[in-house]
Design a protein around this nucleic acid. Structure first.
Lengths: 145, 145
DNA sequence: TCAGCTAAGTTAGCATGCTAAGTTACCGCT
DNA sequence: AGCGGTAACTTAGCATGCTAACTTAGCTGA
C-alpha cells in the first residue's frame, strides 16, 4: 500500500484538476489552466511570460500560447515591456480581475470542504505538500538544469 | 499560505509527473502515462479497457487510444474477450512484463528518496493522500455521475 | 424473430502539455 | 558599424487529456 504514493498522488490530483475544470467551465466558462494563469498574474505578480512559466511549472512555449488565447479572450493585457528587451509585460484586464476575484475564494473553500470530509488535517497536509514542492524544486535545480 | 493547497498540489504533481516522464523516456524509452497503464494491467489486473480507465482515472476514449499504441509497440496484448460481449481482454506481452518489472521498484524508490530528503513522514503523507483519494471518489460518486 | 436496451469501445476534433528549432531585442567588444 | 552572445519569446509538430456522437455485441420481451 505504501508502494503506491506516486500513483495515488497522480490519480488524486488528476481528478481534483478535472473536477476543478468542470466546475469552472460550468460556472464561469473558463478552464482551470487559464484560471491558474490569470491568478498567478493577478495575485502573485507574474509580470513576464518567463516568470509565469516558472510559477506555473510549465514551459515557455506553453505560456506563449496561453497568453495569446487569454489576450484574445480579453482577460489579459500583453504589452511590450516599456523598459526594453524582448519581453512582454503582463497584466489583467478589468474583466480578468473581476473573474479572478469572483472565483478564487469560493474555489479554495471547496477543496477545504473535501479535505475536512476526509478527516485529513488540512494545515499539516498543506505544510507537507509545500515542503515536498520546495525540496523537489531544490533537488531539480541542484541536478543542474 | 494555507490558501494555496490546490495550487501547490497541482504544481508539485505536475513536476513529479514530468520528472518521471523524463527519467522513463531517457532510461526506458517510454512515457509515464504508458508505464502507468502497463503497471495497472500487469499488477492490478485491469483486464478490460473500461476497468483500466477507472483505475487510471481517465476516460474510455483515452484508454482506447492508449491501448492501441501500446499494442502497436508490442507491449500489450489486446484480444476480444472469449466470454463474449463487446470487450477486450488486456494482458502484458512478455516484453511488457519485462519492462514493468524492471522499472517499478526503482521508480518508487526515487520518490521515497525525495520524500525522505524533505523530512516529510512518508507513511503519514501516503496515508493522507490515500484517504483524500477515497473521500473524493466517494463524494464524486454520491454527487451522481 | 426482431425492436429496443445496455455495456463497451471507437472516432472526430479540441485544449494544452512537451521538445527542437527559429526569431527578436539588446549588449559588449573590436 | 557590425559580429557574436544572451535572454525572452514564437513556431511547428507530437502526445495525451477531454466531450459528443457513433458503432458493436449481446440480452430481453412481445
Amino acid at each position: 500500500m505504501e508502494q503506491n504514493l506516486s500513483l495515488n498522488l497522480h490519480v488524486l490530483i488528476a481528478r481534483l484538476d478535472r473536477a476543478a475544470d468542470r466546475i469552472l467551465r460550468a460556472e464561469h466558462d473558463i478552464s482551470y489552466s487559464r484560471f491558474l494563469a490569470l491568478t498567478l498574474v493577478g495575485e502573485l505578480g507574474a509580470s513576464t511570460q518567463r516568470t509565469l512559466a516558472e510559477y506555473l511549472g510549465v514551459t515557455e512555449p506553453s505560456v506563449s500560447r496561453m497568453t495569446a488565447v487569454l489576450a484574445a479572450d480579453g482577460l489579459l493585457d500583453v504589452q511590450p515591456d516599456p523598459a526594453g528587451g524582448n519581453r512582454r509585460r503582463l497584466s489583467l484586464t478589468d474583466e480578468g480581475k473581476r473573474l479572478v476575484a469572483s472565483i478564487r475564494q469560493e474555489f479554495e473553500d471547496r477543496l477545504a470542504a473535501v479535505v475536512a470530509e476526509s478527516g485529513v488535517p488540512y494545515a499539516e497536509y498543506a505544510e507537507h505538500t509545500a515542503r515536498l514542492l520546495t525540496t523537489f524544486d531544490r533537488l531539480e535545480r541542484e541536478a543542474g538544469k
